[in-house]
Simulated scan of single mutants.
Amino acid sequence: MSSISIARVFAAVAALVSTASAACTRESLLASAQAYVDAQKTGNTNALKLSPTFKYQQNNKERALSAGLITTPFKLDLVRSTADTVACASYTMWISSSGSKPYVVGTQIRHDGNDTSTITLIDTIAATTGDLFFNASKTLGYIRKEDWTPINNTGSMPSRELLKKVGDGYLDMWTDPKAADSIPWGTECERVEGSQYTNPCGKSLPHGGSSKPNGMRRTDLVCRYVIDEVQGSVDILCQFDSLGTMPDSHEIRVVDGKVKYVHTITALKVG
């Protein structure tokens, strides 16, 4: 084989490897989320494959990974992850209700360049004793009963546009008097805010009144969301400025075009 032919073979192989490493699939996103969960269970992050530009953020403040909650081992009572192949990101909720320091946590994991071989950002909202409406045992009891069966029928999956609209509409209710009525509330839907339970979801909603919009929705129009059409869910990490500078995660599930579940995790202070 000539040197030119050999060079072409190596180029072809390199191209295939590059394509494989850049694939952002549902399976690879959930595998990366599981690696994060495994690290959280042990408090050991050595197995995580981090990019050279990796950042760790906790309660809207960047900090060293070694100083993060992830380096403390927890017994996890509930773990659930969703995947967004368009934004190349995942969202994981976990609850630890035992021990002296219970937590309810929402974490977005992001990968640059559509490449899940390394993690670019771990962005965590962590609530614990003393945070807004916090009671991990109550929250666990509510969420364990929920049905998160995947929506396997493509025709029944909510669109990304609808999920974005619902997520933004929910966060806009405190400043926009029309936002609450723009959301397609289900008749049998459950809202768990910290440990406060409301059924139906559309009951007792704000209709404006605050002059401060909820900000820090992760400025990029794609990357402020983790949208999973298979689960019919959207998660937005933000700062709940309408009520104070509170780090916050809002996750909403839509089934058959209507809001089915709402989860909020809200810490009272940054960092």
Rank of each mutant, 00 (worst) to 15 (best):
T198W: 11
Y261V: 10
V37E: 14
C238F: 06
L78R: 03
N44E: 11
T149M: 04
T124E: 15
N46L: 09
N44S: 14
E251Q: 10
G209L: 05
L171C: 08
K145A: 15
I122Y: 05
K269Q: 15
D228H: 03
W174E: 05
H111V: 08
K101C: 11
S51F: 05
E229C: 02
I236E: 01
S96D: 13
S249I: 13
F134D: 05
T42I: 11
G257Q: 13
L268V: 12
P150V: 01
M157C: 02
W94Q: 05
H207W: 09
G43H: 14
D131M: 10
G209A: 08
T116A: 11
R110L: 13
K165D: 03
D131C: 10
L237F: 04
S21V: 02
I119M: 11
T25G: 09
G208H: 07
A127R: 00
R26Y: 10
P52C: 10
T175P: 03
A35I: 06
E188C: 04
K258V: 11
S51K: 07
T128H: 07
G186H: 05
L65I: 10
L221V: 11
S2T: 15
F54Q: 01
P200N: 07
N214R: 10
Y142M: 07
V86Q: 01
E190V: 10
G141N: 09
Q231C: 00
T266D: 04
K49S: 09
T71A: 00
S242Y: 11
T198N: 11
N152M: 07
I227E: 00
D123A: 01
K212P: 00
S242F: 11
N152C: 02
S51Q: 05
S117A: 14
S90R: 03
S100I: 14
T120A: 08
G167K: 01
V79R: 01
Y170Q: 12
T139P: 00
T42D: 12
T154F: 06
S90H: 10
V222Q: 08
Y36S: 08
L78S: 04
M157G: 00
C223V: 04
